[in-house]
Every structure is written in C-alpha cells, then in structure tokens.
C-alpha cells in the first residue's frame, strides 16, 4: 500500500514537470503563429490606439520571457487570464466546458472496456470459428472509420430514421438543472430529478458510443491477438490438463495475462478520445472543451489556447497514471518491481 502511494507521488511529480514543459511549448507556439490577437479580438474596425491599448493590457509588447513570467505568476494563483473569445476568465470557461467532455469521454471509455474486452475474449476463445470471423470483420470496420463518420451514421440511423435517441444537446430542453459539478449525470441526481438523470443519460449514449466505436474495435482486436498468443502458452495446456472448463479457462486463466499488454494501449486510446471528441461534439452540438479549444485556436485567443491545452494535457497525464496503476494491479511483476525500487 505504501509503495502505491509513493509510486503515485513519483508519477505526480513527473506529471508536474511534463506540464511545465508543455506550458513553455504551447506558450511559444501560440505566440509564433501569425496574427495579432488584439486585432482579431477587436475586429477590423478598431483603431490603432485601441489595439495598442489592448496589447499593453495583455503584456503583448513585452519580451516573450516577461510574458511567460506573467503567465506563470497568474497560473500559480489559479488565474489563466481572460478569454478574448468569450470575454470571461478562461478558468470559468474550462469549468463549464470540461465536465461535459469528461462525461462523454468517461462513458466512451467505459464502452471501450466493457464492450471491447469481452468481444476480444470471445473471438479468442472461438478463434477460427464464425464468432471470431464476425467480430474481426465488425471491429475492422469500426477501427477503419473515424469517430465523426460513425457519429453521422449513428445520428442518421438512430435519431433520424428511427428516432430512438435525441440528435443534440445534453438534456431535454424543458428540464433545467442548477449547475453544481456541471456533470449533468451528477447534477440531476443532486437536484433529485430522476427524469433529468434519465434524460441526460439518453442524450449522452449516442455521442459516447460514436466516440468509442473505434476504441471498442481497437480494444477487441488487441485483446483477441494477445489472448490467441496466450492460448499457446504452457500454462493454458496445464489448465486444460486439470480439466477446467473452456469457459473458465477463457475468462480466468487466459484473459488476465492477455489484458496486461492490451491495457497500456487501451489507456492511450482512452486519452486520445479527448482529441477525437472535437468532431463528435460538433455533430451533437455538445458544449464541450474540445469544441471550445478549436474555437479559441481559430480566434488566436492566447490565454484560452494555453489554458485548454494545459487542461487537456493534465487530463491525458492523469489518465496515464490511472492506467499504469491498473496495469500494476493486474501485473504482479510490475507491482513487485516498484516495491523493490
């Protein structure tokens, strides 16, 4: 237990260093791309004086090192500056948009694991049979088309031709819920509105599923190939020699060892969902951080770009830590290697 705490602490320290690097990089890149943010924000009809005044308040006339100094000082106080795109503090924007995306990404990740892993295990258990072939063809399809294509197909099939799911939004328009955590599923429960919770879930399923489809395929294909490999190992023959049922061998003796190599990749895929969420959020009019991020980049909204990238990097890094912990939980070799450090 103690070793887990120290391992996590170690990883968090590395995360802070990585974030520091990311902040320098994104800070520079945002300022190198051409275009004057003050001019873009004020529009073509603003006077030169107005633009100059704005550049002054944004410290844009100082050297880049001084600007970075201002940024770090503000950042440590929890201030990411004002977004020129929404005219609100970037922190407020992030607090509003991030939960919507996290909700989407977390459910998509859940689909990836709860549908992808069993599909892969079934394919491996019946390798060479019809179930295996069917699963491999379907997963190849889901992997080879990007999430937004699936989003459009799913909307057409399940919202337009057969109106099973809503086309857009996070909750039915007649239901208004006081924002507390801004996770709709949680806020509806806080408000004690079961109908709201169900409505929010109903709105969430289709975009999350569209987002997860290629991940489901990826997870299933990885699990299948690892597990087929595991089936050639002597310990599976040993399990067979002890007469364990094929079902038990698949779900216990072969599944867990094959999960270890898959899990790291699945973790990376999961983190990549954040980026893939952009087009899905656009198609479903989902007010999330990915859509916001693209909007601010197009506006050269410096503070918001840096803030969004930092938040997405942090989420990515935290997801990685969680995955590494999970890998350590199922892989005793890693667990004991960390202890002996």
């Amino acid at each position: 237990m103690k070793s887990i705490v120290s391992a996590v602490a170690k990883r968090l320290a590395t995360t802070a260093i990585v974030l520091f690097g990311v902040s320098i990089l994104i800070f520079l890149i945002a300022r190198i791309i051409p275009g004057d943010p003050a001019r873009i924000a004020l529009g073509p009809r603003a006077t030169v004086e107005q633009v100059e005044r704005m550049r002054e308040t944004l410290h844009l006339n100082d050297s880049i090192f001084v600007q970075y100094g201002y940024f770090v000082g503000d950042f440590l106080r929890g201030d990411l500056g004002i977004s020129l795109y929404t005219n609100r503090p970037v922190m407020t924007d992030i607090a509003q948009f991030l939960p919507a995306t996290l909700e989407l990404v977390l459910l998509a990740g859940f689909f990836m694991v709860s549908i992808g892993l069993p599909l892969g295990a079934i394919a491996a258990r019946y390798r060479g049979g019809w179930a295996d072939h069917t699963i491999r063809i379907i997963t190849l399809l889901t992997v080879s088309a990007p999430a937004f294509v699936w989003a459009v197909i799913l909307v057409l099939l399940f919202s337009y031709y057969t109106p099973l799911f809503p086309i857009a939004g996070r909750i039915h328009e007649t239901i208004s819920i006081a924002p507390v955590t801004r996770f709709m599923l949680i806020d509806t429960l806080i408000a004690g509105r079961l109908d709201g919770f169900l409505s929010a879930l109903h709105h969430l399923i289709l975009p999350a599923f569209a987002l997860s489809l290629s991940g489901i395929g990826q997870a299933a294909r990885l699990t299948r190939s690892n597990m087929v490999e595991v089936y050639t190992q002597p310990y599976i023959e040993m399990a067979q020699s002890y007469g364990f049922s094929e079902r038990r061998i698949a779900s216990k003796f072969a599944f867990k060892p094959s999960l270890i190599p898959s899990l790291t990749i699945i973790g990376l895929d999961f983190a990549a969902l954040l980026g893939n969420a952009f087009l899905v959020e656009n198609i479903f009019a989902w007010p999330g951080i990915s859509r916001y991020g693209v909007g601010v980049i197009l506006q050269k909204d410096l503070n918001a770009i840096v803030g969004t990238v930092m938040i997405i990097s942090a989420t990515f890094l935290i997801a990685n830590i969680v995955v590494d912990l999970l890998v350590a939980v199922i892989n005793p070799r890693i667990r004991y290697a960390e202890q002996s450090d």
Binding site: E237, A239, N331, P332
Partner: peptide, 16 residues
Amino acid sequence: SMIFQDPTTALNPVYT
C-alpha cells in the same frame, strides 16, 4: 493429472 516439462511456464504468471 499431468506434470509438464518446464514448471515455470506451466504455472500461470498472474495468479499466486
């Protein structure tokens, strides 16, 4: 029951 050639690979690596 059966005993195999290489005991280390015949035991499952992820269970005690």
